[in-house]
Nucleic acid binder design. Structure first.
Length: 432
RNA sequence: UCCGCGGUAGCUCAAUUGGCAGAGCAGCUGGCUGUUAACCAGCGGGUUGCAGGUUCGAGUCCUGCCCGCGGAGCCA
């Protein structure tokens, strides 16, 4: 009985008969010799059927094979330079499971809209397959980084009673007799509570923003990892962010060569992502913009093109810190030396990708935080528990959030975040 | 929400000044013993996004609407 194996392990079975379970990816023929490309989720294998060498009744099955027909194929593994991937299967038998009719995605060109409508099938194609494998490894690297440093994973709730950051739009839903609930746009307030319990924590999950943004950098549902550390000040958390990004890029680089080739991603820029990263203040960033001919108004937050210009000055991620407090969230601590500035930082990815991290030291003084909540016209009742954290053993603490999809788009060299998540949610797309 | 671009065969696109809607791929038929998005020959395939209007005649011009894409604002 031939062993049932996966294509990624074929090199261990050269000369042996094996059984592959999979789907027809493509086929071509010269009449007396057929080539069927079979994929099984781990790779793509060329299966060869030659008149005379293959039993006639098996050879003739070629005619009914259509793209994405599911089958079990058995044969002898052969090493051959002419085969894509270097190995091929000399077919002895084919068992057809189901014949696929009119598979809509052909090996030719398609538009993004068509492919997104067929995202459930598009996942089978080389490119999305490569991206999502890299996503898997990126997520693993993120978890390994924090786990190896003694952080505790604390999952934040998805349904929340109020906005974490007052301004952005929230998805709203009815919540029994308690009024409205909102889909979380950040787990941050909850990890702050957890940091006071466990010291070093992180949350990792989906977050939701009902912004009507239609750009290559926005999804309405995206994944964010948010570490929070007690007794960390701004400098400490910037150091952590820097070490973190160096680590996850390195991990993905060493594990995903094959996928980067499929994506035609030049990995040289990624190999330069080593500490230390450049650090500039908001004011220095403004100078850069003005030197590049941008008429930037001091006190504004950076726009998309501003971020691109700043990040293009460096070949590593750049940390911008000490933003004007007025443009930052209510919970960020202000610089005691100059209250104009917040102890906040963003990390902008190189190659024009822009912001992938936003973080800060948090306001830890009760009266100051209460004042900020009122200044931002936020409902104080909703934040009573959050204020409690400043009543019972308040300490300096800091954290940041990293957007997984933006980070992955940068690492893969993609021009849109929609390809970095299996089923993207955008303002005009909820299906499939 | 605002600005710009687009919607033609299953898919990707073409159609000159308003004048017979066309090609490649996919599908079907036939050919080919080493193909690499194979190739060669043939066949079938259309409510030109929707609703009006101008005109002898509209894919093409006008009005309204729908949908998508790119960008701005906001953000990770």
């Amino acid at each position: 009985m031939a062993p049932e194996v996966y294509i990624e392990n074929l090199s261990e079975y050269v000369g042996q008969e094996v059984k592959i379970h999979g789907w027809v990816y493509n086929k071509r023929s010269s009449g007396k010799i057929h080539f069927v490309l079979v994929r099984d989720g781990t790779g793509i294998l060329q299966c060869v059927m030659a008149k005379g060498a293959t039993p006639d009744e098996v050879f003739d099955k070629y005619d009914v094979l259509t793209q994405e027909t599911s089958l079990i194929v058995s044969g002898i593994v052969n090493e051959d330079k002419r085969a894509p991937g270097g190995y091929e299967l000399h077919v002895k038998d084919i068992q057809i499971i189901q014949i696929a009719q009119d598979y809509p995605i052909t090996p030719k060109e398609h538009g993004v809209d068509f492919l997104m409508d067929h995202r459930h099938l598009w996942l089978r194609s080389r490119r999305p397959h490569a991206i999502l494998r890299i996503r898997h490894r990126l997520v693993k690297a993120i978890r390994d980084f924090f786990d190896s440093k003694g952080f505790v994973l604390i999952d934040a709730p998805i349904l929340t009673p109020a906005a974490c950051e007052g301004t952005t739009t929230l998805f709203e839903t009815d919540y029994f007799d308690l009024g409205k609930a909102y889909l979380s746009q950040s787990g941050q307030l909850y990890v702050e509570a957890a940091a006071m319990a466990f010291g070093k924590v992180y949350c990792f999950g989906p977050t939701f923003r009902a912004e009507k943004s239609k750009t290559r950098r926005h999804l309405t549902e995206f994944w964010m990892v948010e570490p929070e550390v007690a007794f960390y000040e701004l400098e400490d958390i910037m150091n952590l962010a820097e070490e973190f990004v160096e680590y996850i890029v390195g991990r993905v680089l060493e594990s995903s060569r094959k996928e980067f080739e499929i994506l035609e991603r030049n990995i040289e820029p990624l190999e330069k992502i080593k500490r230390p990263f450049p650090r500039i203040t908001y004011n220095e960033a403004v100078e850069i913009l003005r030197k590049n001919g941008i008429d930037f108004q001091w006190g504004n937050d950076f726009g998309n093109t501003d971020e691109t210009v700043i990040s293009q000055q460096f070949d590593k991620p750049v940390i911008v810190h000490h933003y004007p407090a007025a443009v930052k969230a209510f919970y960020m601590k202000r610089d005691p030396n100059d209250e104009t500035y917040a102890l906040a930082f963003d990390m902008l990815a190189p190659e024009g990708y822009g912001e992938i991290i936003g973080g800060s030291q948090r306001e830890d003084d009760y009266d100051t935080l209460l004042k900020r909540i009122r200044e931002h016209n936020l409902p104080v009742e909703a934040f009573d528990w959050y204020l409690d954290l400043r009543k019972y053993g308040s300490v300096p603490h800091s954290g940041f959030g990293l957007g997984v999809e933006r980070t992955l788009a940068w690492i893969c060299g993609l021009d849109h975040v929609r390809e970095t998540i299996p089923f993207p949610r955008m303002i005009y797309r909820i299906k499939p």
